[in-house]
Computed example of a mutant assay.
Amino acid sequence: MITIRYATADDVPALAEIGLRAWEQAATGVADLDALRGIAREAFLQFLAAKWVTVIVAERGGVIAGWAAREKMDEEITDLWVDPALQRQGVGAALLVALEDAMRRSGIEAADLQTHARNAPALAFFRKQGYAVNWLSVTYSPKLDRDVESVGLRRQLVEDRPVGYGPGGF
């Protein structure tokens, strides 16, 4: 059974390690993992130390299996990381549903997120969850010393209501 809860400051080291393992899997073939591993670990630790209050955690059998965040508590899902050993077991979907439910309760009508264009497993996952490509971009990354293709995805969380006169509009 998957349980969703809010993160605590004590979770930061474990969440950073899960983020790092999932990042390594997602960045394989895109980045020099050996060169960037230390930078990535520090980035996860700094983000989580500063923003743990925006993070939700998924546990499976009492063990942290993944986490997700909305850094600015707006329509953008900034992070969704599942331990590679526990992927394809419903953890990511449970995290996404929890974020989307919180967004709806806050009056947010659509969820946005982004990933790199070569992250085929993430793209397939988000498409399966109802997300569609909203934009594509290419940006130079100084850390990687090359262009990186990004994909923005969006999912409508609230159905559009007809606008018009009378019951049901025109």
Rank of each mutant, 00 (worst) to 15 (best):
G90D: 04
G38V: 06
R41K: 11
E109Q: 11
A27C: 12
S141I: 14
G90T: 02
R127P: 04
D74S: 06
G61T: 15
D34P: 02
V12W: 06
A69C: 08
P162A: 14
L99T: 02
F47G: 08
R5L: 09
D147Q: 00
I108A: 01
L45W: 06
G166R: 10
R37D: 14
R127Q: 15
I4A: 06
G107E: 07
V148W: 05
R60K: 11
A58H: 05
W135H: 08
G168N: 05
R161D: 00
R41C: 06
K51T: 02
D10E: 07
G62C: 03
R70F: 03
V57R: 12
W67E: 02
G90Y: 04
A58D: 07
K51I: 02
D101G: 05
A26F: 14
L157E: 01
F47C: 03
R127C: 02
F170P: 15
L80H: 01
V57K: 08
S106V: 01
S150G: 06
L157K: 04
A27F: 00
H116R: 14
A22W: 07
A69R: 09
V57Y: 10
S141H: 12
A27N: 10
V57W: 15
R88S: 12
N134G: 09
W81P: 03
F125H: 06
Y6V: 12
R161I: 06
A117W: 05
V53N: 14
R146G: 03
M103W: 12
A94I: 01
D74R: 10
L136N: 13
R5S: 08
K51R: 11
F170E: 15
E75C: 11
I4D: 01
R70W: 09
Y6N: 15
W135T: 01
P121G: 07
G168D: 13
A50W: 01
D101H: 14
A14I: 02
P13C: 10
R88H: 11
E75F: 05
V30N: 12
Q25W: 12
I18T: 12
K128D: 00
A22Q: 07
D160W: 08
G166Q: 04
L33P: 01
T139C: 05
I4R: 08
G130S: 14
S150N: 08
L123R: 15
E42W: 01
A9H: 15
E75P: 02
R5D: 07
G92F: 00
R146C: 04
